[in-house]
Amino acid sequence: MRCAIEGCDGMPEPGASVPLCSDHLFAAYETVSRDHGITDLLPSPCVACGSRLGVRWPSGWLCAICEWRHGEWPDAERPDARVDVVYYVRSGDRIKIGTSGNPRSRLAALRFDSLLAFERGGRALEQQRHWMFAELRFAGSEWFRAEEPLLTHIESMSTGEDAWNQYFRWVSARLALASGVSPWGSEPG
């Protein structure tokens, strides 16, 4: 059997649902992807709604749910994109517990070795954590000795994913709620 395209002597690709050679299968794929896009999993969750389902176009990925362009970040100045977090950063044998509504900007201004975790919450939660770990605190600062029980607390927040991915998921969910689009792919009800 030969390729179904008249005049083509190529052999059909094994397992292809249509008897086309690899060159004609690729040409069909390119036509479909250009005109209709290819639905697939996004490389990472959509930052606007949290969906993993995307459409790949020649110009790039779009979220299949909210059509946010993959790789673009929400404007940090948008009030509906703000997610207050308590952050835990390590520098040597010290850990800083701080808070910010714009952690990218805040952490860019700090010197530290590693970001350990984010925890959803604002100033009240930060003060609660300072009180919880007061015996480890360096006087007059937001820095604490990297010892138990602080290390255990930080470990308990670990979801196995990068802290920034977790933060961007929270921003995505916040934006989805503000826009009325569910991060799970259907209208909120």
Rank of each mutant, 00 (worst) to 15 (best):
M1G: 15
M1D: 11
A4P: 01
I5M: 14
C8E: 02
C8H: 00
P12V: 03
G15T: 08
G15K: 10
V18K: 13
D23K: 15
H24P: 08
H24I: 08
A27R: 15
A28K: 14
E30R: 14
T31H: 12
V32H: 13
R34T: 14
R34C: 05
H36G: 05
G37Y: 05
I38K: 12
I38E: 15
D40R: 12
C46P: 00
A48R: 09
C49F: 03
C49R: 03
G50K: 00
R52H: 13
V55E: 13
V55L: 07
V55K: 07
R56H: 13
P58E: 13
P58T: 06
L62C: 08
A64G: 06
C66M: 05
A81Y: 02
V83Q: 00
V85C: 05
Y87R: 04
R90T: 06
S91M: 09
D93S: 13
R94Q: 15
I95S: 04
S100T: 08
S100K: 05
S100R: 00
N102Y: 11
S105A: 12
L107H: 02
A108T: 07
A109G: 13
A109W: 07
F112M: 07
L115A: 01
L116C: 04
E119P: 00
G121S: 05
E126M: 12
Q127F: 10
Q128P: 02
H130G: 07
H130Y: 04
H130R: 07
W131N: 11
G140F: 05
A146G: 03
P149D: 09
P149S: 10
L150N: 05
L151V: 10
L151H: 05
H153E: 12
D162I: 01
A163H: 00
V171M: 01
V171E: 00
R174K: 15
L175T: 01
A176N: 00
V181H: 08
W184P: 02
W184E: 13
S186I: 12
G189W: 08
G189N: 11
